[in-house]
Amino acid sequence: MIPERHLNIAVLMLFFAVPAWALIMDEPFTITLATRAAILALAATGLNIALGLGGLVSLGHAIFFGIGGYAMGVLAFHAQTYTPMQLGGFEIAGTKSMPVIWLVALVASGIAAVLVGLLSLRTSGVYFIMITLAFGQMFYYFAISWRAYGGEDGLSIYVRNDFPGLNTLDPIQFFGLCATLLCLALLVFWRLARSPFGLALGAARQVPQRVETVGLDPVRLKLVAFVLSGMMTGLAGALFADLNRFVSPTMFSWQFSGELIVLVILGGVGRLMGPLIGAGLFVTLEHVLGDITDFWHVILGAILLVIVLFARGGVVGLFCGKARPDA
């Protein structure tokens, strides 16, 4: 077993080394793959707050990813067509500014997470999974019927949005942007896990009634975690839409929620680098195996089966053992 800190440093070094190597070798597609991994890792880090720290198995996190995506899509669409949005009698101009889009994505996904969380956190276990799934389907079918923004066909954005001082169309610069946001998210997760809030959340995950007797409200703890988690995943959705310059209802699909859970389980639930390792593996397998066969998901499924059966701590658990060995 190796110390988790060493593995974390190695993973981060590899994460930055791959696009650096691709830049030198003039392989922009590899940089784009690394960017995709970074964005998926950001979304999965969001889920890791709810799932890893709070024990909330959400099959509805695609809601927040989709909201982030559509925040980008709608704002950029109005900016590129020079048509203002009509909102309750007000006219609001679109924007191509990434920081503004991110802010809108964070706020919108945060509000959605409050609403979904308030209703779904009244339940637990399989009922929580089912309610989050139901909410996800509601958003999915709403996006399909939202003709103003492409309906089932989705919405194409022709030019990537702007970030002050950067050429976002340059793959390495856009990677840098996404990687920076991922590192910030990892820092938030790391601080959160060690904060009194994170510890209380961990305690609420183990025995909700026991935290009540020490004056903590387990539902409120989980709601705060769920909202933070949703906001982070929403931000990832905005970046993902910018990466592909396309948004569609599939961003809301329950399959995507499932994929996010797979990423976290592959890497290690509740482990700092679990989502990044999971996303890296997922993108690599998707690219390498996808070239060999269209049925690459079967192989991914087999790998997941092995992980769940023989390495419950995911890849991090395989190398570093349990998250909290007995001292």
């Binding site: 009194p196 510890l199 209380a200 305690a203 183990q206 935290v211």
Partner: peptide
């Protein structure tokens, strides 16, 4: 049970 002694104290 899964928290350390110090974490048990700080969490509450």
């Amino acid at each position: 049970r899964d928290l350390t002694v110090s974490e048990n104290l700080v969490a509450t």
